[in-house]
Design a protein around this nucleic acid. Structure first.
Lengths: 207, 207
DNA sequence: GTCTATAGGCAGATAGAC
DNA sequence: GTCTATCTGCCTATAGAC
């Protein structure tokens, strides 16, 4: 999940780093410009120079997060791994976020959706659309070559995967228990693995 | 999900009703005493008579919600329905909440977990513990009589179910699309249904 | 139980000097 | 780009009359 070289200044980048962590742990309505300013070591007035309004900051957070996430997904997609391994690597991305004591930024913002400015809402949907487009591609490829097994539409399964992973992160955080997320994710992946002695059941259903 | 006859006054109950809806749509950090007061038709000072602090109100919200939820679960458990039907009814409870344009109160609060006062955090965990205890019971019964099929531990499957349903609600709300939740839930239930011609695979695995 | 009045703090945001 | 100073508004909460 390397960061793309952006056009934002070094200070703006540091602001985004701090704001991102605050947003992932406390939510968009759970931190203030004063919180960021104290950590970065500048005043709130200076913050407003980089991001005129909190809505601007929030949108920048989602866009940067989505871009970094997308870059990570593209890297996984380009690998020679099988579909199942790609899905396991997808899960690991979420797992690592949780391991850093954070909730997925966009899952967090999804909870506060109704209170967010429209541009943030739109950027948020793009994140999930990107995720599910990537998942559909992997799921369909995997089902075609027999490395992944599931019933129903790939889009529905992709929706379940994103929802289940986001929700499992949410609950694992309430228990400060990363292993709880791991167990849910494993339970989920289990249903996607081809039944050992039943290669026949991995053929695609009609769609 | 009938409301248990409580000892709280009529006004306090109306306050909780309004606060509950605000909390389920905007989150605990997304509404104020002023919002409630305006809707109920009393002043914020009067609100403080019923709930001295917002933390008190929040705790009362979670406790009442948990009790009502538990009552609904007990009713389902007492029915003569099979385990699979009970799980479908469990899903329907979540579905109905979403149909009322609300997020699960406790799923919402789970996102804001780090910003909540300790008593609320504790009450929140009780909600999820109750849910999963109920699910484990249903899952194990169903697996024993062959009406439900899954691999791994019942506790892990229960954790996946709560996480997946909470997360699916979260995302469906961002798309204002209840059907999206329905599709994820159906995809999830599908994995629990016994394979038509394979009653043998519904036997419990070693645990 | 509900009100008016108000305290005290923090929020996001701006003006203008450097 | 960053600062000091300040504004306005909203927040939770309290005092005290009715």
């Amino acid at each position: 999940m390397a960061r793309a070289p952006g056009r934002t200044s070094d200070t703006a980048e540091r602001v985004l780093d701090v704001a991102e962590r605050l947003a992932q742990t406390r939510g968009f309505n759970g931190f203030s410009y004063a919180d960021i300013a104290a950590e970065v070591g500048i005043t709130t007035a200076s913050l407003h120079y980089h991001f005129p309004t909190k809505a601007d900051l929030g949108e920048a957070l989602v866009v940067r997060y989505t871009d970094a996430f997308q870059a990570a997904l593209t890297e996984v997609a380009a690998s020679s791994d099988g579909a199942l391994t790609k899905l396991e690597r997808y899960v690991r991305i979420y797992h690592d976020v949780l391991g850093a004591d954070r909730m997925c930024l966009c899952g967090m913002f999804a909870a506060e959706y109704a209170t967010l400015p429209a541009p943030m809402q739109q950027a948020l949907r793009r994140f999930f659309d990107d995720n599910e487009r990537w998942l559909v591609e992997v799921l369909e490829t995997g089902r075609a070559d027999g490395s992944v097994q599931f019933e129903g539409g790939a889009a529905d399964m992709a929706g379940l995967l994103t929802g289940a992973l986001e929700g499992s992160m949410l609950l694992a955080r309430s228990y400060s228990d990363v292993a709880r997320f791991g167990a849910s994710a494993e339970q989920l992946l289990r249903t996607l693995r081809p039944t050992p002695g039943a290669a026949r059941s991995s053929r695609p259903v009609r769609r």
